[in-house]
Design a protein around this nucleic acid. Structure first.
Length: 483
RNA sequence: GCUCCGGUGGUGUAGCCCGGCCAAUCAUUCCGGCCUUUCGAGCCGGCGACCCGGGUUCAAAUCCCGGCCGGAGCACCA
């Protein structure tokens, strides 16, 4: 069991665990969502259980769902090797929630409340019951029917669940279960105008889906205390819960779905899959492997303290997967053209380079040339008289830095200073333009033509970084994965 | 302010429930070394932590109390 990296789940029995991931599809899945997808699905795998994806989309106004996001979530779950066994759309199941609230109204465990927010806030903070609390079940059901009939305006009345107005935690006191929202819902249109709150919808769904364990962020810790009242009234058993703290990722800072949405609208990002964004779509585009993302979140565990991690941890996981399989190519960024003088046609030979040093059988070929490109970063470091080696090709000595001329200094590797004096290069006669889109900046330069056959794959541009080759139409476009 | 939760190396994490085998696990970062061809990759090694103060005990990272610090909730959002 230890190999899974997650601690044993309390009360879990093999084959009987049912867990869910319940996002609001008001934008695509982000790194934050990924934790929920990964941890829940991982436990389901461990115990051979069932994984439910549930869309908590019952507020068409404040958290207006985004129509495309529903399918994006499903795609992202599948990509993360967490294909849901069942998918539930809360907005399509609203009549079910009506049935249950009607039952609670009959039982006088819920009541229609006409207090304004401000009025009720005062009752709540003072621990006093509001005048509507003792409405009879007949009157309550009558009001409820009129709510459904559209007899009330938005904000005029809500349905509250009776808890305890003297509960020591004010957050638990008589909470709202249904409110009126006259706004078209992207999925169900104008079919309803009385919507359940998350707490009500979630409480009902968790029970009817037979959810055994809930693991979610600690921002929802009070939900359990609120929902337990319903479970008690209806004689249900509450799932076992676990909560994790906030995750913040150094490289991305605080990016909520709504702030990203605004930034996209303002044109600061290309779209939801802009490589600078912490969305799963963006990470996929950049070439991250789903297994690396799983391991990353499993390594965070399920502790309740807040964590602040660096993407470097994800890079390390990704590298372990990608390094043995990614083909190597040369990419010369900020290219500088240099000339090797004093020797002619002998340079025009085939240069064989390994595609991946761990797999000696594969190789690629470059044409030797007296006019080559090297990266500006490398060139500027050299001093006149210094010998450098063009990797796998030949040694050259810098003669005149201003004129960028070098002299031939032998073929042999022996005697060459290792390390930074072995550089990558490209023959001027055989290059394709290439742009790599990075998080902080883009890199322009030339790549070797051989790379074109790996479009769609993750490669390593030697001495640069791992990149995912995105497209080629005369120019190669690539996304910067990580060093 | 009220309610609840948490504090293990630079960053995460294991251990804490059931005190001793913990001079504390693993990963990553950082540093150093190695590699006849990536010193921006790979391999090997190293530095580095139980928030503070009391208490209980033969024995405390582990239990108790107080303090300090951090976080969450107190929405007709999820």
């Amino acid at each position: 069991m230890k190999e899974y990296g997650l601690p044993e789940l309390e009360g879990a029995e093999k084959g009987k665990v049912v867990m869910r991931f319940a996002p609001n599809p008001n934008g695509p899945a982000t790194m934050g969502s990924a934790r929920g997808i990964v941890v829940n699905s991982e436990y389901v795998k461990m115990y051979d259980g069932k994984f439910v994806l549930r869309f908590d989309d019952t507020d068409p106004r404040t958290k207006k769902p985004m129509l495309e996001a529903y399918d994006w979530y499903i795609e992202d779950c599948e990509w993360l090797d967490a294909k849901p066994h069942e998918i539930i759309y809360a907005s399509k199941r609203i009549p079910i929630y009506y049935k249950y609230v009607e039952k609670l109204l009959e039982m006088e465990k819920a009541y229609p409340c006409f207090c304004s927010r401000e009025e009720f806030r005062r009752y709540r903070s003072e621990g006093v019951e509001c005048p509507h609390r003792n409405t009879s079940s007949e009157d309550a059901l009558d009001v409820w029917q009129k709510m459904l009939d559209g007899a009330y305006k938005e904000g005029e009345v809500v349905i509250r669940i009776k808890t305890d107005m003297k509960h020591k935690d004010p957050a638990i006191r008589d909470w709202v279960a249904f409110r009126i929202i006259y706004e078209s819902h992207p999925l169900v249109g104008d079919a309803y105008h009385v919507y359940p709150t998350l707490d009500f919808e979630s409480a009902i769904e968790d029970h009817i889906n037979g959810i055994t364990h809930i693991i979610r962020g600690k921002d929802l810790i009070d939900s359990e205390r609120r929902q337990r009242y319903i479970y008690e009234y209806l004689g249900w058993e509450y799932p076992i819960t676990k909560h994790w703290g906030r995750v913040s990722i150094h490289e991305f800072g605080k990016l909520s779905t709504s702030t990203i949405k605004r930034a996209i609208e303002e044109g600061k990002f290309e779209g939801w899959d802009d490589p600078r964004l912490p969305t799963l779509r963006a990470l996929r585009r950049r070439g991250f492997q789903p297994e690396a993302i799983r391991k990353f979140f499993i390594s965070l565990g399920v502790g309740e303290n807040d964590v602040s991690v660096s993407m470097k941890n994800l890079y390390a996981e990704n590298r372990k997967i990608i390094d043995p399989i990614a083909n190597r190519y040369f990419f010369v960024w900020d290219p500088v053209e240099i000339r090797i003088v004093g020797i002619g046609s002998e340079l025009a030979k085939e240069v064989k380079l390994p595609l991946n040093p761990s797999k000696p059988e594969g190789f690629r070929v470059l044409k030797g040339d007296s006019e080559v490109y090297v990266s500006k970063d490398d060139f500027e470091r050299f001093e006149e008289g210094e010998i450098v080696r063009l990797k796998e090709f030949c040694n050259i000595r810098l003669e005149n830095k201003e004129k960028r001329t070098f002299s031939f200094a032998g073929w042999q590797l022996e005697g060459v200073k290792k390390g930074k004096n072995i550089i990558h290069w490209l023959p001027k006669s055989e290059t394709i333009p290439c742009t790599v889109y990075g998080i902080e900046r883009s890199y322009e330069g030339f790549a070797e033509r051989n790379a074109v056959k790996d479009v769609g794959k993750v490669v390593q541009f030697e001495r640069f970084a791992f990149c995912r080759l995105e497209s080629f139409d005369g120019e190669l476009k690539a996304g910067y994965t990580h060093p």
